[in-house]
């Protein structure tokens, strides 16, 4: 029986730039940074309060996951902002939003009260988008 999700992948255009974004702008932590030879690198990060879910930053390039042709197609899709990879939660969306904005993160939706909570949308350095939510923002 499946008990939990241990790894999830995000396709990024450049691992060094993604490292800078996820570690220095989002405040994530490096879980594993292992050389795989020939320019390949296994890089996983974790959200500050979820150390057991490794987010794998997979470079979209020929090699580990992709053929040359697939990588070219995927890069175009990632750049276009095709992929939304998930929802990140925070305790205080206004403070989180302000901090991320001060660090240069691009938001496509400012925090807005929805029926399910307060939500904002932002993009990572590759063009992938995420929802940022505060669940307990709407209690009444």
């Amino acid at each position: 029986m499946i008990s939990k999700l241990s790894h999830v992948s995000i396709y990024v255009l450049n691992q060094d730039s993604a490292y800078e974004f996820y570690i220095n702008k989002l405040g994530f932590k490096v879980h594993t940074d292992a050389p795989m030879g020939e320019g390949m690198r296994w890089l996983t990060v974790t959200a500050p309060e979820q150390p057991d879910l490794e987010i794998t930053l997979i470079p979209v390039k020929e090699g580990m996951m992709f053929t040359k042709e697939t990588a070219e197609s995927m890069r175009k899709l990632v750049e276009k902002g095709t992929f939304g990879f998930g929802v990140f939660e925070c305790k205080d969306i206004y403070a989180t939003y302000e901090e991320m904005k001060m660090k240069g993160v691009e938001f496509t939706k400012t925090p807005k009260k929805e029926f399910y909570g307060i939500e904002a949308l932002f993009k990572d350095d590759s063009g992938n988008w995420f929802s940022l939510g505060q669940k307990d923002g709407v209690k009444s």
Binding site: A34, P35, M36, G37, E38, M40, G63, M64
Partner: peptide, 10 residues
Amino acid sequence: SVKKSNFEEA
């Protein structure tokens, strides 16, 4: 190929 060559190299 990565598994057989690069990993051993690493």
